[in-house]
């Protein structure tokens, strides 16, 4: 595990006020020793959650805890139920069985907006950014600060530009031109803009849907560093991926899904990268295949 030497400036990076999480320091120790899930109550919790679409069981009996200041990784192959799980957490689907608790209370979200109001922000793969629009306009899209009385209500343009610039700088993105269209940013930078936006608008839980899927090694590194920065700022991060290497670099807890069920659920201390890779690669099935092909 290299690259653990994150700059001190990054720790006070993201905007959340409750930065005083011991997470940062403790989790450095976690690289060797590992942390346990105990302690504070989980922000989000799924108990025996399942989701059926007609006759098709997309998800069944999933237990999941999401803690502040931790990165929980959800791994799984295509069709393992990752996206169904995200959609339940994000408020897009209601589980057909089991319970979804936020701050210990059972919830039934009827729209993503309600989840967002509880501080649960989801950054989807397609990011919900408008490519042709400048970065600062994208940053505030849908929640624009305004001044003046109708019909002269106008955008606080100077404030928007300064805030977007400052927030992105905190995340380590220094754009020479905040007016540049989002299309001019790299894939990693786009992810970070979307994450910074979610954090700025009060996210406590950040659900990242395959944020490194379409990125090269360098750009993935950029994103992973900000996953860590968000965690150190006290946010709970749910990191969905099919890449065990990426997961193992930032994760504190790992949940591997297979055919809609939890195949593996382990804290970092109990799981080496090789185990994770093995599980993701198909585990016993792969062993059998290797034997069969006999090379």
């Amino acid at each position: 595990m290299t690259g653990n030497d994150r700059g001190a400036d990054r720790a006070d990076g993201a905007a959340a006020p409750d930065t005083a999480q011991p997470g940062g320091a403790a989790l450095d120790g976690a690289e060797q020793g590992g942390t346990e899930q105990g302690g504070a109550a989980p922000l989000l919790r799924l108990i025996g959650a399942g989701k059926d679409f007609g006759n098709i069981r997309a998800l069944s009996g999933v237990d999941l805890e999401v803690h502040a200041g931790r990165v929980g990784c959800v791994l799984g192959d295509n069709g393992a139920g990752k996206s169904t799980l995200i959609k339940i957490l994000a408020g897009l689907h209601r589980p057909t069985s089991g319970t979804y608790l936020v701050d210990g209370e059972p919830v039934e979200f009827s729209s993503p907006r309600e989840a967002l109001d509880r501080g649960i922000a989801t950054v989807y793969q397609d990011l919900a950014l408008v490519p042709l629009m400048p970065v600062w306009r994208n940053f505030f899209l849908g929640s624009e600060p305004r001044a003046g009385f109708w019909p002269l209500t106008r955008l606080r343009v100077a404030e928007m530009r300064a805030t977007a610039d400052a927030e992105l700088k905190k995340m380590g993105i220094d754009l020479p031109d905040i007016d540049a269209p989002v299309a001019d940013l790299s894939g990693g930078q786009k992810q970070v803009v979307a994450i910074a936006r979610a954090v700025y608008f009060g996210a406590r839980v950040l659900i990242l849907d395959e944020p490194t899927a379409a990125l090269g090694v360098k750009q993935s590194g950029v994103v992973l560093r900000y996953v860590r920065a968000a965690r150190d700022a006290g946010l709970a991060v749910v990191f969905i991926t099919h890449n065990p290497h990426h997961a193992h670099m930032v994760g504190d807890h790992f949940t591997v899904l297979r055919l809609g069920e939890v195949e593996l659920d382990a804290p970092r201390s109990e799981l080496a990268l090789d185990d994770l890779v093995h599980h993701m690669a198909g585990g016993a099935e792969l062993d059998a295949l290797e034997h069969e092909l006999g090379r």
Partner: peptide
């Protein structure tokens, strides 16, 4: 095969278009 994270200094430069 785990890809190494870039050192902070280097990547800040990369990020500056």
């Amino acid at each position: 095969p785990a890809p190494a994270l870039p050192a902070p200094g280097a990547s800040e430069k990369e990020l500056r278009a």
